[in-house]
Amino acid sequence: MFLEINNLHKHFNTKTGNLVVLKDINMEIQRGEFICAVGASGSGKSTLLRQIAGLDQPTSGEVKVDGEVITGPGPDRGMVFQHYTLFPWMTVQQNTEFGLKLQRLSKKERREKASTYLEVVGLSKFAKSLPSELSGGMKQRVAIARALASEPKVLLLDEPFGALDVHTKELMHQFMLELWERTHLTVFMITHDVEEAVFLSNRIYALGARPGTVRREMSIKLPERTQHVKRNSTFHDYRDELMEIMRGHGQEALIAA
């Protein structure tokens, strides 16, 4: 097992008492899989990803990557955040190199690797631009290149395309699939967009809210991965089933909120 989440619980101590955000999460992800976790807003998706990234410690349970228990953040798990997190004073090239700089690679190695991954995300031409000069989709692609430059074991994505318009989103989906086919990366992506999850992943974990638990695990087998497949009845079946799960628990969440 490549990425393992065992009996993970996460509580927060808040003013109103003990808030159970994640309850008994178990996941198993193989090397090279593209996995999506789908859940409504507030179902604890970001919290879950933070435990995997090591930015936060679970209340109980553990996360293992390649057999090792996670105790803190590290470049072996590349993370793309829900909000834009490029360093505004660095150019696209410098942003992409930054992780390698922190890991003390030589200048030459840094430049070569960063250029390679900028090429992969199709932004070589913008190497000298500042983040403020990029569109939202481009910013997230730089963030992906920055994470990839450290050659991580797994790429963690927290609703990376949530803020993009429908058309840009479709382009980014195409891009993600090409990237995944080319690099055989292990991808763990979080989203509230059911169609996005069905279109991209091999397997989906559907999360229920308050507390966040795994409601259903679903393998996705589609005849093809192009925009046409979205009109296919198999695609619709997967989508409707997931919507049903989310709808049921969405109402609970609303009452709880």
Partner: peptide, 26 residues
Amino acid sequence: PKDLIEATYTLGGNRLQTLLQVIFPH
């Protein structure tokens, strides 16, 4: 932004690097 500091950690930065190379320029 806390996100920027956490992004630095996930890229392999330690606390001193984060202080000097992210917080200070920001």
